[in-house]
Amino acid sequence: MKAPALEQRKLLDLQAADNRIAQLNHTLRTLPQEARLAELQRDSIAARQEFGGVNGELEDARVEISRVEADIETVAAREKRDRERLQASASTKDIQGLEHELASLKVRRSNLEDIELEVMERVEEIEERLAAITARRDDIATEERLLAAQRDEQRARINAQLAVAQSERSAIAAGVGAELLALYERQRERYGIGAALLRGGVSLGSNVALNGTDLAQIRAAAPDDVVLDPDSNCILVRTEESGI
């Protein structure tokens, strides 16, 4: 293939533009906030799950308190009834039976009150854990919002730079002939680089010094001949820096 030497030199600008676009795209894919946001998302899920579990404990404990309180009220009602019967009774046998039952009810009420106190203490401990989880969950949400805002700001800035780079790339590509441009695109797609400078006998596409045979073939090529790097297969652009 042949192409004017000046047109071939434009490929170096085109490659630089493509490198810049690739760099910006890589930066977009690897924004530093993303990794931390992913961690925070996992932490948020874990905190919500923990909150759900502890909140379930709290609900169970409150149900238990309600049940114990109902039992205490039942015992208190029986005590009241028995005292009223005791005051109204004239039977020694009934009095003894009522006194015995009242003693049993007193023990039962005391035990229930101990259980109530124990459960209330457990409720307090669970509420403290729940408050700590809530605070942690809120901290996570706050950090997520701040990082997401930073990420979005950085992404917008990079996208603006990318739009400029792509516009500049289009302008450069417009100055390259269709056949040469197609070869450049094909080589870049296949090998990762489309064109590189030959400087001092070294291909900047592969960073390898060409051997004598390859250099001799390049020296023999006309200025408008399009030559390829034998190692990287990119288009080798020759300038006064090429050392040939």
Results as ranks from 00 to 15, higher is better:
69 E>P: 03
46 A>W: 01
115 I>P: 00
104 S>I: 05
104 S>Y: 01
146 L>W: 14
118 E>G: 06
64 E>Y: 03
111 N>T: 10
96 Q>I: 08
175 G>W: 00
52 G>R: 13
135 A>Q: 13
160 A>M: 07
111 N>C: 01
87 Q>R: 13
156 A>D: 12
163 A>R: 09
111 N>V: 09
41 Q>S: 10
63 V>T: 10
118 E>T: 09
157 R>L: 07
147 L>Q: 03
177 G>Y: 02
72 I>L: 07
57 E>K: 15
145 R>C: 06
103 A>I: 02
95 I>P: 00
43 D>C: 00
79 E>M: 15
80 K>R: 12
105 L>C: 02
107 V>L: 12
132 A>E: 10
49 Q>I: 11
135 A>G: 04
138 D>P: 02
96 Q>V: 10
61 A>P: 01
43 D>R: 12
43 D>I: 02
68 V>C: 00
139 D>S: 14
79 E>S: 10
179 E>A: 15
163 A>S: 12
84 E>Q: 13
89 S>N: 05
179 E>K: 13
111 N>L: 10
185 E>W: 06
42 R>E: 11
167 S>F: 08
181 L>H: 09
128 E>D: 13
110 S>H: 06
120 M>Y: 05
188 R>L: 04
45 I>A: 15
45 I>K: 15
168 E>Q: 13
132 A>H: 11
48 R>P: 02
180 L>Q: 04
155 R>E: 15
164 V>D: 13
153 E>S: 15
146 L>T: 15
161 Q>T: 03
51 F>W: 00
119 V>N: 02
129 R>W: 04
63 V>Y: 05
168 E>K: 09
97 G>K: 08
115 I>G: 00
105 L>N: 09
83 R>T: 09
48 R>T: 13
68 V>S: 01
171 A>S: 09
170 S>E: 15
93 K>C: 00
103 A>W: 02
73 E>N: 12
176 V>K: 02
127 E>V: 13
62 R>Y: 03
175 G>C: 01
173 A>N: 04
136 R>E: 06
86 L>K: 02
45 I>R: 14
110 S>N: 08
46 A>N: 14
161 Q>R: 10
59 E>L: 11
182 A>Y: 07
132 A>C: 03
184 Y>P: 05
111 N>M: 07
112 L>V: 00
166 Q>A: 01
132 A>W: 08
51 F>S: 11
48 R>E: 15
132 A>D: 10
